[in-house]
């Protein structure tokens, strides 16, 4: 009888050995295939339908299409990257908070970003390049504040969530105050950003997002393994030789960076970071959130929701965040009432 961890396949060479969770690997493969299909569909649909065959020819350089190359490809790519980032960010933050209801909005990232962006728009430094930067700054500062305030001889998961909620509420009040003071067109502009939208997103958002994601790949790879230990209490983790304080800080920093960058690119796309990790975990049936599955699922949700946002009403476009919230909210409720493990923290 084998005693290696349950449900894992051992990949072994003389210099290294890896344990791969079998079901997670299968789920990740299926999600990757689905994601590729939805991504292609995202390039096909719009005001004018372009058949997948034509789109593929454009992608492989055999043909040209301005609609695909300059409009749909950048937009769908941004959607994909934003989804990946939110999927990972949500997984990491939920792991640290030990709470399936924690997400970047709970720990202040989204509200911090929103407050900063609205502040920027109202005081005249909003714009295609300034908005993502102010969002990143606002999100990171808010999350830093929450982390520091929740720190009392170590990070207490419960304080972390409660203080995050408190700071978020305060920031939302600031945002509303700014909006009521603001000029009506600016307020309108800010509202659209705040509901999360991929409309008009292109390479100017996609490029910085790509670089940040690439730069964070080593950190994400580290996080995927380190997150295993975050489920223990502090004493047990130290007993096993794990520096849980450092791991928590590292996971939060990576999560906050990803969430702020994604928020900067597309606005706070609601519920993706909240739902993707939990659904991924249920699909893969793992004790901790499977990072790769969560990332792929996040991307799948955002790209699909964006297609829906473009298709649902003719002649107008819904912000993608409205769609993710409309679908994600009820789904989460259903999941939590239905599942035994969902409510535990």
């Amino acid at each position: 009888m084998s005693h290696r961890p349950y449900g894992h396949v051992l990949i072994r060479r003389p210099r290294f050995s890896f344990l791969v969770h079998r079901r997670s690997a299968v789920v990740a493969s299926v999600l990757a295939v689905l994601l590729a299909a939805v991504f292609l569909l995202g390039l096909c649909v719009g005001v004018r339908f372009i058949p997948p065959g034509d789109v593929l020819r454009v992608l492989f350089g055999a043909d040209e299409s301005i609609v695909v190359e300059t409009l749909r490809l950048p937009r769908t790519t941004v959607g994909l990257l934003v989804g990946l980032a939110f999927g990972i960010a949500g997984a990491l933050i939920q792991t640290v908070a030990r709470n399936p209801l924690a997400s970047p909005d709970v720990i202040g990232v989204s509200h911090g970003a929103a407050a900063a962006v609205v502040f920027g728009l109202v005081f005249g430094f909003g714009g295609p390049t300034a908005t993502p930067l102010t969002a990143i700054a606002g999100g990171s500062v808010a999350a830093f504040l929450v982390y520091v305030l929740a720190w009392r001889r170590g990070l207490n998961a419960q304080r972390f969530v409660l203080i995050g909620v408190g700071i978020s509420v305060a920031l939302a009040a600031v945002t509303n105050l700014l909006l009521t003071k603001a000029d009506i067109t600016l307020a309108q502009q800010a509202k659209v950003w705040m509901s999360g939208s991929l409309n008009g997103r292109g390479w100017s958002q996609g490029e910085p997002l790509t670089w940040v994601l690439l730069a964070l790949v080593p950190a994400i790879v580290w996080a995927a393994r380190a997150a295993r230990s975050a489920g223990f209490d502090d004493d047990t983790a130290i007993a096993l030789g794990v520096r849980l304080g450092r791991i928590r800080l590292g996971l939060v920093v990576v999560g906050v960076l990803l969430a702020s960058v994604a928020t900067g690119a597309a606005g706070p796309v609601d519920f993706v970071a909240l739902v993707a990790p939990q659904v991924a975990r249920r699909l893969a049936r793992t004790p901790q959130v499977p990072l790769v599955c969560s990332a792929l699922l996040g991307a799948l949700i955002v790209v699909s929701a964006d297609i829906g946002a473009r298709m649902l009403i003719s002649n107008a476009e819904l912000p993608v965040g409205v769609l993710t919230a409309a679908v994600g909210g009820p789904y989460l409720l259903w999941m939590l009432t239905r599942s035994r493990a969902g409510g535990a923290s």
Binding site: H3, Y6, A230, G231, F232, D233, P287, A344
Partner: peptide
């Protein structure tokens, strides 16, 4: 001691 949620004995 607190175990990670949903972990099996062998794990």
């Amino acid at each position: 001691p607190v175990p990670p949620e949903g972990i099996t004995v062998a794990d």
